[in-house]
Design a protein around this nucleic acid. Sequence first.
DNA 1: CCATCTTTGTGCACGCGTTCACAAAGACAT
DNA 2: ATGTCTTTGTGAACGCGTGCACAAAGATGG
Lengths: 215, 215
Amino acid sequence: MPTVSSEELAAAAGVNSAKLRKDFSYLGSYGTRGVGYDVEYLVYQISRELGLTQDWPVVIVGIGNLGAALANYGGFASRGFRVAALIDADPAMAGKPVAGIPVQHTDDLERIIQDNGVSIGVIATPAGAAQQVCDRLVAAGVTSILNFAPTVLNVPDGVDVRKVDLSIELQILAFHEQRKAGEEAAAADTAVAPAARRQPADKGPDGDVPAVMPA
Amino acid sequence: MPTVSSEELAAAAGVNSAKLRKDFSYLGSYGTRGVGYDVEYLVYQISRELGLTQDWPVVIVGIGNLGAALANYGGFASRGFRVAALIDADPAMAGKPVAGIPVQHTDDLERIIQDNGVSIGVIATPAGAAQQVCDRLVAAGVTSILNFAPTVLNVPDGVDVRKVDLSIELQILAFHEQRKAGEEAAAADTAVAPAARRQPADKGPDGDVPAVMPA
DNA sequence: CCATCTTTGTGCACGCGTTCACAAAGACAT
DNA sequence: ATGTCTTTGTGAACGCGTGCACAAAGATGG
Ligand SMILES: NC(=O)c1ccc[n+]([C@@H]2O[C@H](COP(=O)([O-])OP(=O)(O)OC[C@H]3O[C@@H](n4cnc5c(N)ncnc54)[C@H](O)[C@@H]3O)[C@@H](O)[C@H]2O)c1
Ligand SMILES: NC(=O)c1ccc[n+]([C@@H]2O[C@H](COP(=O)([O-])OP(=O)(O)OC[C@H]3O[C@@H](n4cnc5c(N)ncnc54)[C@H](O)[C@@H]3O)[C@@H](O)[C@H]2O)c1
């Protein structure tokens, strides 16, 4: 029987082995002292707890650049998700297949949700339409939403929203990038100056952020 | 002078006002007691601290469905990012413009990075190519990477990687969705049964997760 | 100039997640 | 059987982020 110890798993994942054991203990998964965890059983237990043994139908609303890319993405199926329908407001797109799935018009949104028993919706419309689309999804029975539009969605209790904001991801990287440069400058005072780090051009007072700096 | 109090800001953002004040205090003491914060000055200070006053050139590697969607996305420019170049390994794409920017071949990756002084790279290649692309980006001087490929990237110290895994976002939603159903079932024992919640089909023992469940 | 009122900045305490450390459980050899 | 050795499961300690509460700062009005 193939087994793994918490120590091995922790090393591979780069986490603390005690934390890993405590986490597993919440699942009630039983390891064997002196041996470790039965790999197959462990994988099954975690998969089940995470809902990976189920098959979730999802709808994507807004089949533009991003929505089409998502529809074409094959990685969802292997994680237990099935694109049940594609929905767009553009009448010209209705009927056209994207990734082999015909795009349907927003008018039929409620029916599509209900016919397919969908509880997870993806919003890839422009920001201006997102709240309205969200409201309709929720009214039709969707209780989990993945939002790509750069807007905060208001939803009733019991509905989960996750927002994916790619600009913020870049901003976080840029923030650290800026700090790297700052630390290097500070280090250069006491140590040998490191190779020059590239710096972006400062927008100066004409950027799209306020340039006024009161005393 | 337009001002805003920590209480107002906290209410708008849905956070605690004390935490908000403490966070601001790390940037320095910019408030006026009895009045609040000068809006314009505050926005400038935060923008500067976050690096939004700078203009960061980024390259996107892998101009497929996702890479093209990113290239077409106008939301980056307003946050201080500029798509400096698009890179793909497919010779058939070389020279073709995507979002008005000509796609360049991977052969020139190092030169492109250096010519444009790029320190932030976006990887949207298939998973198999991601590590190799990452290595080349890092060797050419990139120190921050936004990775869309479903792979863990190994990078040397000093290089930041952020991974965007859309499947995991859906999995997190599905996980909570599953728990909602479970809690309702439990609640139904003691209270009036709520409206039936839709449940996805269980893959059963034939899913792509192990189905063996040892005693 | 003094009183009052508003709002900041922050010391302190609380709670929660992480880590340490070890007793107990079980495998395995003799 | 008995002893040794490995690894789990978890109580207890630690550290850190969050929130409370209040003194000090400064505006504002009389
Ligand atoms: N493309 C990206 O890389 C990217 C990155 C980050 C964020 N976003 C955000 O994702 C969203 C979509 O981006 P995109 O580049 O695909 O835009 P897009 O303009 O290419 O696509 C938007 C689609 O939504 C459809 N639509 C408009 N209103 C609708 C409605 N009420 N109901 C249904 N469909 C409607 C349009 O017909 C269009 O097909 C935007 O909010 C954008 O800010 C995109
Ligand atoms: N499309 C999505 O919605 C989505 C969602 C989640 C994750 N992803 C991930 O993002 C990545 C890209 O997805 P996609 O749908 O755009 O795939 P895609 O196949 O449409 O595009 C991949 C592109 O990368 C190029 N490429 C391949 N090897 C390369 C190399 N060594 N150097 C440079 N370019 C190379 C290909 O020529 C192609 O243009 C994949 O790893 C995918 O798993 C995509």
